[in-house]
């Protein structure tokens, strides 16, 4: 169990709010998809830090699964934006 400085957590929460600004404001649909993708990457980092703080390794399993699903979601959104079906 290792303590995480509060500055690091505040900085990551600030990053998440900047991503949320881009998701809400984003002038086009790809902007929002990009914001969701970046937010997923940030959540992976946050989950890993939580795992280090609590010393439980299944938090890293959650991070791994989240990275996988975020990647698949980004690919599916990109294909949808391009105007193709998901199985092409």
């Amino acid at each position: 169990m290792i303590g995480i400085p509060a500055v690091i957590l505040f900085a990551l929460v600030l990053c998440a709010f900047l991503c949320l600004y881009r998701i809400g404001r984003g002038p086009s649909a790809p902007d929002r998809a990009m914001g969701i993708d970046i937010l997923g990457t940030l959540i992976v980092a946050f989950t890993a830090l939580t795992g280090l703080h609590t010393g439980r390794d299944w938090y890293l399993s959650i991070a791994l699964a989240w990275a996988l699903i975020s990647f698949i979601g980004a690919i599916a959104l990109a294909k949808n934006l391009e105007g193709r079906a998901y199985d092409e």
């Binding site: 990457t41 959104l77 391009e82």
Partner: peptide
């Protein structure tokens, strides 16, 4: 914890540029 963390790092390093490239292509084509 350490092994899963390194695995996660490798996975993000491989997939994140691919997803961004697909998003840029989709944005241009749309």
């Amino acid at each position: 914890l350490a092994i899963k963390s390194l695995l996660c790092a490798v996975f993000i390093l491989l997939t994140s540029p691919v997803g961004a490239h697909a998003l840029a292509r989709g944005a241009y084509r749309s």
